[in-house]
Amino acid sequence: MTNIGVILTLIVIFGGLLWLLVRSISGREVDRRIIFLFIFVSVAAPIIFQITFKERATPVVEALFANIDGLPAGSKVLISFDFDPAMAPEVQPMANAMSRHCLEKGHKIVFMSLWATGQSLMTTTLSRVILPEFPEKVNGVDYVNVGYKAGNEGVLNVIVSDFKKMFPTDVNGVPLDSTQLFRDIRSCADLDLIIALGGGRPGPKEWVLFVGDPADVPVGVGVAAVVAPQLYPYFPQQIVGILGGVKGAAEYEQLLIATHDRFVDMETPGIDMMGPQTLAHVVIMAFIVIGNIAFFRSRSKGGSK
């Protein structure tokens, strides 16, 4: 079914593109509704026929993976969910994959959020990934969810010197002082790694400026694809690794599956979403080429465009 689906999809899309190319050579522009139709087919078909591709990790993703992998068991990792549902399809798979990786390596996780919407997305990761897949992990010992705190950079400014001043309790009202995980954590300087997930403000950049650099704690980031290029200046000195968009998530999932047998059958939304994304990119590239052919054709005819 999948092979037939792939063949059918490719015939429909590339046949259609060829037809548009012929039209463009004859000097005719493509209507925007036809472009919309092609994008719809290129996104829908891989979802229907479950078309996926094997991912090869880029150095920025490998660096973050290696950083988490190389930390000794018992290291304290903070994961901040600074995103909203609009970014969730891109960023949530990263959150799930990195949470799995951290717990599998025996790291302790502190979950928090600087965005009000991040609180619910954090709950999703906890209830759909950690509780069912890591039933042996104990809240308060292996992970703590301290929830959302309003105040943006103000929160970071305080937790960099005193974490419990800003978060005296976890999300359930349990004092952090009474949790085993927080016995050795006074400030962010006591953490071994910070993973900032998001793409807006406050987000990864604020984590670097207000916590990573002042407290000298490594920061890894997972962001929406459109934000990733803006973070390259911080890599590798101030940011130890970058996961950009669905591709970043897919690469991380691929690395996780390749290195940990336990995760061979895990859910891989990042890899699953790369099918539609890859095909849509190919279609967009084809349209850019077709558009330029139409442009040069009209120019050679002396058209105004």
């Binding site: 493509v30 472009i35 994008i39 609009a86 969730a88 849509a280 077709i290 558009g291 040069f296």
Partner: peptide, 28 residues
């Protein structure tokens, strides 16, 4: 409700980016 609505609005970008890329990305 909230997640699908926001994700849908964000996803609509794919259609507009494709259309914009076709019209604007030209070797002028």
């Amino acid at each position: 409700i909230m997640m699908p609505i926001l994700a849908t609005i964000f996803s609509l970008l794919a259609f507009f980016i494709a259309s914009a890329a076709y019209r604007a990305f030209r070797a002028r």
